[in-house]
Nucleic acid binder design. Structure first.
Lengths: 240, 240
DNA sequence: AGATGCCATCTTGCATGGAAGATAGCGCTC
DNA sequence: GAGCGCTATCTTCCATGCAAGATGGCATCT
């Protein structure tokens, strides 16, 4: 194989231009992660490291090391001497993920509501802005935009809680459940309910009521779960 | 270097005998993880992969890959072209960790309390057994045994919640805070309080009262945090 | 025809070498 | 004496080679 390696080979659509100084391992990690999120790598697909390396224009080593990170994130499983298996998501996995969300996001909402007044208000304003965007998208029947604004609401909440470990946990489970959310976006009914619940959460934070914020967040996630899980089961999406 | 590699070189005390079929990467991961937990690798220490590889009797590759996993776990940071940095723990990290514990273990207790009666009772019996062991150790003034029984109580609770993702999160933060717990074990006062709170948690689970179980668990962790954090700060343990 | 064992091939695990970035020490200049 | 640049050295990053496990197909035997 060519010794002079091209510093950047963009064989994969998801691979964005490096901004400053990225290692090949990071490139491989990002490319594979987005490929999995966008389902360019279908769940259940078993790829060989060699093949992925070829496609990304690098050798097997960085692909292998990126695969280790993705395995730690719960996105793939590295089968010894067999290849990289893109993990599927069973309804039971969704249940697990929602329990983590209920726990972490609930505590995050509680923490944000307990912040000093200035920060609380800033956070609430932030959250309301995202909810506004959701309402607009809903009025315009723009489902993808709605989903993105919803994602930004939850991301903002976690960010305001100022807890790096919580952020990492949330990001991990979000990566895992991204496909399920996208698939079920057009099946869901409770869009207005979501918007109303977001308002309640922001209001509790603005008022500085941790208990109410925690509870509102939990109710929100529990309702969403109870809406989503039956959908997954009834549509026979055993694994996706 | 010798081409014929020794299948197992036990240069590190923490490295236990492989039970069935472990890869060198797994060996390196386990060895480094236990070394960090036991503070054989002091926090702040910057090791070179070559040096660790030599000590473990393997080449640099498996050490490098294990380091990637440990970085994902938040135990070390791999500094490009500089080495492996064993991460220290600041009081603020302990605050973050306790918020994760409050969130996850609270939800876990709630879930266990909502289990069918048979499983609930089994779980409560399990938990009480560990609390008994704590009481005995306390009576015998055996601090390390107390700490281990306490660890088993919390591990059992998570196990009964049957949520693999929660288990992983808890294990990660426990690994990170293990050193802090060991160091502060002999400074702590609220041993009886811990035992009493454990009883309350088990009782709420036995009675099938999720709300009370959640709340008892939260109170337990919050009190422990409020006892631990001032200790860390006052003893000037800026990073450990 | 059905079962079985062998082997060609595909796969990763791991070791190693070359390249390049980071760093510290030393000598030179002002 | 202080500052600056050069270079020797130490480090990881990545490509690649070899070995060994896994697998599927084919020939052979019953």
């Amino acid at each position: 194989m060519a010794r002079a390696r091209p510093r950047r080979a963009d064989g994969v659509p998801g691979a964005e231009e490096g901004e400053k100084k990225t290692s090949l391992v990071d490139d491989a990690y990002d490319a594979m992660r987005t490929a999995i999120r966008d389902a360019s790598f279908a769940p259940g697909y078993q790829a060989s490291e060699q093949e992925i390396a070829l496609r990304l224009g690098m050798s097997r080593t960085p692909v292998h090391e990126a695969a280790i990170r993705l395995q730690e994130d719960g996105l793939v499983r590295v089968l010894p001497r067999k290849g990289i298996l893109i993990l599927a998501l069973a309804p039971d996995d969704v249940r697990e993920i929602y329990d983590v969300l209920i726990a972490i996001e609930g505590r995050a909402a509680e923490l944000v509501a307990a912040l000093p007044k200035v920060e609380r208000l800033a956070a609430a304003r932030d959250l309301d802005a995202h909810t506004d965007a959701m309402a607009e998208s809903h009025a315009a029947a723009a489902l993808p935009a709605w989903g993105e604004a919803d994602g930004r609401f939850h991301a903002a909440l976690i960010a305001h809680a100022r807890n790096g470990r919580m952020s990492r946990v949330i990001q991990a489970v979000n990566d895992q459940s991204h496909r399920a959310r996208m698939l079920t976006l057009n099946l869901r009914r409770g869009l207005e309910a979501s918007i109303a619940e977001h308002r309640q959460i922001a209001q509790a934070i603005r008022a500085g009521e941790p208990v109410e914020a925690l509870d509102a967040m939990r109710r929100h996630r529990i309702r969403a779960r109870d809406e989503l899980l039956p959908l997954l089961r009834s549509y026979g999406l055993k694994h996706l």
